[in-house]
């Protein structure tokens, strides 16, 4: 498969690149990697990273070293819905461990694993700035807060039918349209 942005994504990429001063196009790297991740199944393969390098006329290594530094870029395939549960202090104080345990049992996977149908991946993450509404999880661009095990059940059912939330950008577009 040839790696290439859709017409729409390419327009967006060029708009992003144009924000930065002449000769500083490398600044667009992080936003472009977000865009690439949402275009290509929620993760960054080497071919995708090489493509981004070509858009910015930088060396592929400059993309690899950046992509591997930041936790939001997935270096391997993930499920359609990436569930990220915060495990830092404020969430732990209000029961995040129970939430993680519940999801593990419900989906029959460990943290870091993907369900066999490729639907869900479970991850634990550090503080997402939602401590006042703890415990919480993020799926796509959406924050789900003040969680209880019942709410998690509801959410998983909803995601199972709606799908498509592994990308931070794509779920935003879905949201805005609905």
């Amino acid at each position: 498969m040839e790696i290439k942005f859709s017409e729409q994504a390419l327009t967006r990429a060029n708009k992003i690149i144009a924000r930065y001063p002449q000769g500083k196009q490398k600044s667009a790297l992080l936003p472009l990697l977000h865009l690439a991740q949402s275009e290509f199944d929620g993760w960054l393969s080497q071919a995708v990273m090489d493509y981004v390098a070509s858009l910015l006329t930088i060396k592929p290594i400059e993309v690899y070293e950046v992509a591997t530094f930041y936790s939001m870029y997935n270096m391997k395939p993930v499920g359609k819905c990436l569930i990220e549960v915060c495990q830092t202090s404020s969430c732990w104080l209000r029961g995040s461990e129970e939430i993680v345990q519940h999801i593990k049992e419900k989906l029959n996977i460990e943290v870091g694993e993907t369900t066999s149908d490729g639907m869900f991946t479970l991850k634990t993450v550090e503080c997402l700035g939602s401590c006042g509404t703890a415990p919480m999880l993020q799926c796509g661009a959406n924050f789900y807060e003040n969680l209880t095990t019942d709410k998690v059940d509801e959410l998983i059912e909803k995601l199972r039918t709606n799908g498509e939330s592994s990308s931070y950008l794509r779920s935003l577009e879905v949201n805005l349209e609905s």
Partner: peptide, 27 residues
């Protein structure tokens, strides 16, 4: 005025790491 997204790294809150990140580098 532009908004620029980071990508998950607490250290990018440190101001010089933030600037590195804004230049498209590791934080």
């Amino acid at each position: 005025l532009y908004v620029h997204p980071g990508a998950g790294a607490y250290i990018c809150g440190e101001e010089t790491a933030l600037l590195e990140s804004l230049e498209g580098k590791r934080g």
